[in-house]
Write a protein that binds this DNA or RNA. Structure first.
Length: 109
DNA sequence: AATTTGACGTTAT
DNA sequence: TATAACGCCAAAT
């Protein structure tokens, strides 16, 4: 194995894996924690390669608490089901009490 | 090497 | 206040 430089994507995976159960975070929050506050879009893009990782992509939403990425999951409501399974209230792709379930990496780390 | 993309965020109208 | 357009930055083609 070669010690390749951790790509920006890999760092996103590391942070996403640290999201506690029953919590969610936003792309911008992760990006900002990595020092790339303007790279929020990259975080979401990184999740595309999250397949095969232990990254709970379903716990990552946009800053509005909207399940924008659910379209990328298998089913149409799979992402919502996963969140509800963790005790998070989701209605019409919108997380209820988003501020309560929001987990800020900068605050936790 | 250059261009396009994209699961967002912010600023302007 | 709500809606629309722009900007960003890293990876993939």
């Amino acid at each position: 194995m070669k010690p390749e430089t951790l790509s920006f994507f890999d760092r996103v995976y590391e942070v996403a894996k640290q999201i506690p159960y029953g919590r969610v975070t936003s792309y911008g929050a992760i990006a900002r924690y990595l020092g790339a506050a303007r790279s929020a879009r990259m975080v979401g893009y990184a999740m595309n390669g999250s397949s095969g990782k232990d990254v709970p992509a379903h716990r990552v939403v946009n800053r509005k608490g909207l399940l924008t990425g659910k379209q990328h999951f298998e089913g149409t409501n799979l992402m919502q089901q996963l969140l509800e399974s963790e005790g998070i209230e989701v209605m019409d792709n919108q997380i209820q009490n988003f501020e309560k379930v929001f987990w800020d990496p900068g605050e936790a780390l």
